[in-house]
Write a protein that binds this DNA or RNA. Structure first.
Length: 362
DNA sequence: GTTATTTGACCGCA
DNA sequence: TGCGGTCAAATAAC
């Protein structure tokens, strides 16, 4: 508990410090010779940092007096209770929603959207490995979208009644970006074999020649072998929390690629810290296997700083982000920690934290 | 033979 | 009634 608070504190400090650092960089970019792109990028990063910090604070205020769920294994949706830190509005909604027939549509179901950018050449071979196994159950042309939307559900749907689903939609504007929308909550307890190369989502969409536009074709690569698929990477991974009207935290997690945690200076997640603070509490999903659309990507070190989200465009849509869970799938070959699922929920937030202490913000 | 994917059909909501 | 989401049979891959 104490460790958790310390970790949260570090998170806040890290985010704020990062914001400060980025602001400094932005200042340096204020001269006319600096590119607009660079400035915009910095602004986004700064906003991201502060949003992150604020979300931690907001959530902390919300959950301070509430018991925390154990992380990792998604709670059964039927087990939602008002004692959950994710209660508030969404709990009721979710209970209502989830009590319905699992097969019924749940349009109001809380969801979270991630944007996964595929870097051509280093490309991404599939949707993010969020530590769960997914099976595609449908694909649909969406009005106004150039690319079809893929529908996936947890492979443990039948065996364990896991109702989690996700939708993968290739972005129209940027074909290298996949928007992954998660719905439902994993109730499965995964105990699967290690990562295995799997069919790629990129291929999935690539195969659909009718959706190929000329512009895109140069981006599309021939179907890589399983071996080569390991060398693809994510350039950017944006995470949005949608439907936050629910304030639910049903998907209270970020998901981002991370590095191998080898740089203690840039990463607050040093290996010992991870082992001591995180791994011990992680669910099996933390070390879950590759999924049918798992990624095997290498991640540039810059993608993991401070909270590991720094250079990621982590966005929260709508209002507050009440809880967060961090998933940091990494290359099997690159990282000693393959899948990192870190829930900040796990961290107890103490409202007695000395925010009024000037030293904290120094 | 088993498992995963594809795809047309169906259902329900707006 | 159109559209998004899901089902389930057919097919492919392993």
């Amino acid at each position: 508990m104490e460790k958790s608070m310390e970790w949260e504190q570090k998170t806040l400090i890290s985010e704020l410090a990062q914001g400060k650092e980025l602001a400094k960089q932005l200042r340096n970019h204020l001269n006319p010779s600096s590119s607009l792109e660079a400035r915009q990028s910095l602004v986004e990063k700064i906003l991201s940092s502060y949003e992150k910090a604020l979300s931690v604070l907001n959530r902390g205020a919300l959950v301070a007096d509430q018991p925390k769920p154990t992380i990792g294994i998604m709670e059964s949706p039927h087990s939602f209770s008002n004692s959950s830190p994710w209660s508030e509005v969404s709990d009721q909604d979710c209970k209502q929603e989830w009590n319905k027939d699992a097969n019924k549509k749940r349009k109001t179901q809380p969801r979270r959207t991630e944007q996964v950018k595929v870097c051509p050449g280093t490309g991404l071979e599939g949707p993010l490995d969020d530590g769960h196994s997914w099976r595609k159950y449908g694909q649909k042309d969406i009005l106004g979208a150039n690319f079809p939307r893929g529908y996936y559900r947890c492979t443990h749907r039948h065996s364990q009644g896991c109702l989690a689903t996700k939708q993968v939609q290739r972005s129209d504007e940027n074909h290298s970006i996949f928007e992954v929308t998660y719905r439902g909550r994993h109730t499965c307890n995964q105990a699967s074999p290690p990562h295995v190369a799997s069919p790629s989502l990129e291929n999935d969409f690539s195969k659909q020649s009718k959706y190929h536009c000329q512009q895109q074709q140069h981006e599309e690569k021939p179907k890589p072998s399983k071996e080569t698929s390991r060398h693809f990477g994510i350039d950017c991974h944006q995470v949005k929390n949608e439907d936050l009207g629910s304030k639910d935290g049903i998907f209270p997690f970020f998901s981002f690629p991370c590095t191998s945690f080898e740089n203690e200076e840039n990463n607050i997640f040093t290996e010992p810290m991870i082992e001591n603070s995180f791994l011990g509490s992680f669910s099996p999903t933390f070390i879950s296997p590759a999924t049918s659309e798992s990624n095997y990507f290498s991640v540039s070190p810059c993608h993991m700083n401070s909270f590991g989200i720094g250079s990621e465009n982590v966005q929260t849509q709508g209002c507050e982000l009440t809880t967060e869970k961090i998933s940091a799938p990494t290359s099997v070959t690159n990282s000693p920690i393959r899948d990192l699922d870190i829930s900040i929920d796990y961290v107890d937030f103490d409202t007695t934290f000395p925010f009024d202490n000037p030293e904290f913000f120094a």
